[in-house]
Design a binder for these strands. Sequence first.
DNA 1: CACTATGAACCTCTAGGCAT
DNA 2: ATGCCTAGAGGTTCATAGTG
Length: 381
Amino acid sequence: MDLEEEFKDVNVEDPTSMDKVLILLENIQAEDDEFMEILLSKQNEMIVTWEQPWYQKSRCLTRPLKITDDSLPQFRTDSICKDESDEIHRNWRKFRKMFNVPNKPVCIARWRNKTKSKRPNAPSEYVRRFVIAFLAQGLERNLYQVYKHVVVRYGSKVKGNYSKYEEKVMNICLLHNPKNSVPYLSTMLGREPRGIYKRMLQLYQGKPPKKKLKWTLSLASKFINLLLEYTGEPLENLKYRSIEKSVWLKLEKDMGQLYTYLQYFWMVTLHSQLFVKYDIEVQALRRHLFKKIKQYPYKVWTDIRWKELLKHVPDGFTHHFLHNVCRKLARSYKGYLNVPLEELIQYGLNKPCVKRRLKTLALNEHNALEVIRYNQKPEYD
DNA sequence: CACTATGAACCTCTAGGCAT
DNA sequence: ATGCCTAGAGGTTCATAGTG
C-alpha cells in the first residue's frame, strides 16, 4: 500500500478523510486477524519440546521479567546485538517452515490484545507467547526482551524524517481525535509509537522557533550559571549528575532553545570540557578507545556499549563524548554500522587526523567560563 | 479485593540526515 | 566530509481490565 498515492488528493479538512484512514486501518487489522486465525488453527501442535531456561518460561510477554531469585542463571540485560537479532530471524524462518505459516512476522509485531481475553492461556495469548518463545530459543534473553525486539524489527520499519503525507495522516487524526490514535498511526505508518507521539505533540503545540545557536564562552557561561541556579548545586556536584526535567524546561525558556538540544550540548560537549582535568589530545584518546573496543567481543559498531568504555578514560568524560568523538571518524567509512568492527577499527587507527586538544574550561571568580590548560597528561594503559 | 495481565505514555541514550 | 539537531530505540511507569 502506497501511503503517498492514497493520500495525494485527500484534504485534511474533508469530513470523509478520517473514513479513509479507518479503512486503511481495517485492512491492516483484517490481515493481522487472518494471520492470527492461521496460528490459532495450529495451537494443538504448539508444544514446547526444547529445553527452556527459567527466564523464558514466564507467562508474561509484554511486561519486564521480575527477578525473584538472584541465584538463578542470569540473562543478558544490554540491548540486543546484531548476532542475536540474526538468531531471532533464523528462528522465525524455522518456525514458519515448521508450522507452515505465511512469512509475515509483521503480523506478530502488530498484534495487540485489545479485545480478547487477557487470561495468559487464552488461545490468542497462548499462541503469541509460543511464537515468541520459539524465537527466543538459544538466546540468553527473556520473552519480554525478544517480544520487544520483534515489535521493533518487524513492526516499525519506516525511519527517518516524516514525509508530508505522513504528517497529513497525523493531522487528520489530530482533527478527528479518535481513541488510541497514536498506536493506530504507528500500525499504519510502520513507525515507532514513541516517535509518532512526539511528532503529533509538535504538530499540535508547534515547535519552539529554531534559532541558530553559536556557542561562545559567554553563551556557555550564561547556560552554566542558569544550570547552577536552577539545580542549587555547586559546580562540582553537577559531574555525572542527572538533572531533572523541570530544570531543563526552565533552561529551555531562558535560552530560547529546545531543552533536548541543550541536554545534547551539556552531555556531548560542556560536561567533558568542565570536568576533565587533563591535557587531552583527541586523536590519542580516540586511538586508545579503538584499541580498547578491539578487546571487547563486539562484532559491529552498534554492539559497542559506550558507558562500559568510561572505565578506560580519565574521570570527567561522558560516554556521549566518547561516542561522538569516535563516531566522527567512523562514519566516513561506508556502512560503518554494519561492517565487521575489526575492519572499521583498522580504518580508524590508520586514518590521518588533525591534531587537536580538548578545550578545557573553568569558572573564574566572576562566574564566567574561561579556557584553562592543564599540564598533566593522562596515562592510558 | 488482590493479583497479574494489558496497551499507552514517558524518560534516556544512540543514530539519521539536513545544512554547511 | 563534518557539525548540528532531532528522530528512533530501549527501558520504565501509568492507568486499567480480567480473574479467582
